[in-house]
Simulated scan of single mutants.
Amino acid sequence: MAANDTVAWHWYRWDDLDRDLLYELLRARQDVFVVEQDCAYPDLDGKDAMAWHLIGRDRPDATAPLLASARVFAPGDYYPEAAIGRILTSREGRGRGLGRAIMVECHRFVAERFDAGVRLNGQAYLKDFYEGLGYRVVKGPYDEDGIPHYEMLRPR
C-alpha cells in the first residue's frame, strides 16, 4: 500500500478481490461510467482477471469509502506497453485532486514493476489533462461506446 496526504492506495490482483471488494469496485464503475455518464457499455469485458486493481480510500481499512480506482495491465496483456484503464473518482472523492493522484500512483507502479511506457484510451474531455501528465495522442478522436476518446501514449 502507498499513501499520501489525501488517500491510501492499495493494489490488488484478481485473486485478492473477495466478493465484497469486487462488488464495491464494480458498483463504483457502474455508478460513474454507466449511471453518471449515461453510457451503456460492457464493463465486464473479461480483462479484470489479468489486471492489477488500484483502490484509493481515505483510510487504509476496507470500511472507508472507495474514492478512486483504476486497473493496470502489464506490457503485452492489452497493448505492447503497460495500459491503464477504468480510471475513476467517485462522487465522494471529487474535488480533492484524486485524478492526478491516481495517475501518479499508477505511473509509480508501472515504473517500479514494469519499467515501461503506458498507453490509455482517454475520454476526449480529459485530453489536456493527460497531455499534462506526459501523454501524446496516437489515435483519434474516435467513438467508444458513444463517447469521444483518444488513444494516448506516455513513453517510458
Rank of each mutant, 00 (worst) to 15 (best):
W14L: 03
R13V: 05
C39G: 14
H53T: 07
G56W: 13
I102G: 07
M103Y: 04
G76Y: 07
R29T: 03
A70K: 05
K139M: 13
D77C: 13
R27M: 08
Y79W: 12
G46K: 02
M50I: 15
R108Y: 00
R27Y: 09
D18S: 11
G46I: 01
L44Y: 00
E112A: 05
I55E: 07
A74N: 08
A40T: 06
T63P: 00
R108D: 01
L25A: 00
A28K: 08
R113K: 08
G99Q: 09
D18Y: 10
N121R: 14
G97T: 07
V137T: 08
R136S: 08
E112C: 00
D115Y: 10
Q123F: 00
A111T: 07
D48A: 10
Y78Q: 10
V118D: 04
Y41W: 05
G76D: 08
D31N: 13
F73Y: 09
Y130G: 13
D45A: 05
R86P: 02
D61L: 11
Y79H: 13
I102T: 11
R119Y: 12
G132M: 06
S90M: 13
G46S: 01
W14R: 01
E105H: 08
D77P: 10
I84E: 03
R19N: 11
C106Y: 01
N121G: 15
D61K: 07
Q30K: 14
N121Q: 15
C106F: 02
L25F: 04
V104G: 00
P75L: 11
M103A: 10
S69K: 02
L54S: 14
A49P: 02
Y125M: 12
R86S: 04
C39D: 14
R96H: 14
D115S: 15
Y130T: 13
Y78W: 11
V118W: 04
Q123P: 00
C39L: 14
I55R: 06
L44R: 02
P42N: 01
R13G: 11
W52V: 12
R136I: 06
A116H: 12
A64R: 02
R91K: 12
F109L: 03
D16I: 08
K139Y: 14
